[in-house]
Design a protein around this nucleic acid. Structure first.
Lengths: 120, 120
DNA sequence: TAGATACTGAACCATACGGTTCACTATAAC
DNA sequence: GTTATAGTGAACCGTATGGTTCAGTATCTA
């Protein structure tokens, strides 16, 4: 029934993990302005290239960033899949929940009706 | 300019961190069916009460779960704030990005126009 | 071709995280 | 009032994570 949610949970979970870090959020923010190299991202973050590279790999595996090698520099830009996965999971969860609350409410209404019937 | 995004980033980040764990996702899924005690959550997860309690605290601090003590048991149910924060951050990010892409496209169109003018 | 630049990978280190056990408190149940 | 149950907190442990340095490799640039 909620199989499609479970299937997506894995990749959404990876996106959530990638989003759960201030450095990576800052990188995404910066990439919102346009693509950048590892050096350009590492500098402002006050971090070594190696350190930033690790973050980029995590973002890339989560589908939040796409990269490609251009000569000796690696070009990074925003991807969409990861964001879509995470947003989809959240929306589905909230949608399911509202449905469930509505069913609950209906059930309560029904019970009230039954009580009224019995009291007649 | 994107101050409101930064302000929310902290709490959204906390929600993302809380969502980045399979046990906690399972707990949220279970709570979607209705409230539960710590014991009821710990059992199926094959975990000690203490372990589950820690997860619940993390979910609670992220605004994904609300709890209250009833006698000697602690009742847990879904909250909404955390989900809202996370969804809001994601939506805002995607919205900003689309805007930025549109501006980029316009700029390119404009450049093409200028080139045509010059070639006349 | 020599030297500088941009990354990359391996190894290492400190701390955070997910889990446990154990000892304790508070509430139910008999 | 005694005993069982539900949760809590402190302390501990192994592993994952975020960072570094160092020693390469590949690609510019002069």
């Amino acid at each position: 029934m909620v199989q499609y949610l479970d299937e997506r949970a894995g990749s959404a979970e990876r996106a959530f993990a990638a989003l759960a870090d201030p450095v990576r959020l800052a990188v995404l923010d910066r990439l919102g302005e346009g693509g950048a190299s590892i050096s350009e991202l590492a500098g402002p973050a006050g971090m070594t290239l190696t350190g930033m590279k690790k973050h980029i790999r995590i973002l890339e595996e989560a589908g939040l960033v796409r990269t490609e090698k251009r000569g000796r520099t690696r070009w990074c830009e925003l991807a969409t899949e990861g964001f879509d996965e995470a947003a989809f999971w959240l929306d589905e969860f909230r949608r399911r929940r509202h449905q469930q609350l509505n069913r609950l409410e209906e059930a309560i209404e029904e019970k009230k009706e039954q009580k009224k019937e019995q009291e007649k």
